[in-house]
Write a protein that binds this DNA or RNA. Structure first.
Length: 197
DNA sequence: ACACAGATACTCT
DNA sequence: GAGTATCTGTGTC
């Protein structure tokens, strides 16, 4: 079953970030399906969060899609090298998002290895830049609906155990002052696929 | 025009 | 495990 738009229409991105753990992210790029269980996420809140691209609701060409209604993909380039995959949340006009940081590969492992030019399954989806590459995510998915043909999220066949969620501070946001300390990173306890071992 | 980034892959110990 | 080069779009001056 595919996750519908109302799942993303939530005023609290940390709730969406937690709820996304255990769900399965799919992409279909050039006719090839790859998928992985989401094991690590981070929440970003537009108006109040210094670590967010849309801090103080500042709209730019890059972050424009964050101001759309939840349920779209926000992709951007960081360090001139890596594409990071985010999910826009909340109602139109509220620029919140959840960053997907790590996956546990399920389908299309061979394709992921080829895309990342690796021959070992470990650590090909354990980090936001790596997983984008493994899943074939790039700027062409910017603004794409998560109900579309190329990227979507499904519920797992068996229920996910909420007791296994760990809260931690976000990564790479030291510039955000006090907001850098917010426990808005969430991951599945003891999962080997998270980005920091 | 210019400084720098929601990270990774190297190269050494 | 720790230190270091990476290399370009975007935002701001």
């Amino acid at each position: 079953m595919i996750v519908q738009n109302d799942f993303y229409i939530n005023d609290d991105p940390t709730e969406v970030a937690k709820n996304l753990l255990g769900k399965i992210l799919y992409t279909k790029i050039d006719g090839i399906i790859t998928s992985g269980i989401i094991v690590e996420t981070e929440a970003y809140k537009g108006n109040s969060d210094r670590a967010c691209h849309a801090y103080q609701n500042k709209k730019t060409n890059r972050n424009a899609v964050m101001f759309e209604k939840g349920g779209k993909a926000y992709v951007y380039l960081v360090y001139g090298i890596h594409y990071l995959f985010n999910i826009v949340t909340n109602i139109k006009g509220k620029a919140d998002a959840v960053l997907i940081r790590a996956l546990e590969p399920v389908k299309g492992e061979n394709k992921m290895l080829i895309r990342n030019n690796k021959n070992n399954l470990r650590r090909i989806t354990s980090g936001p830049g790596l997983l984008s590459k493994a899943m074939g995510i790039d700027m062409s998915l910017y603004g794409e609906s998560l109900l579309g043909n190329r990227v979507w999220i499904e519920y797992p066949s068996k229920e996910f155990d909420n007791n296994k969620i760990v809260h931690a501070k976000r990564i790479g946001v030291d510039y955000a002052g006090a907001d850098a300390l917010l426990p808005w990173r969430f991951y599945i306890k003891d999962n080997i696929w998270i980005s920091k071992p």
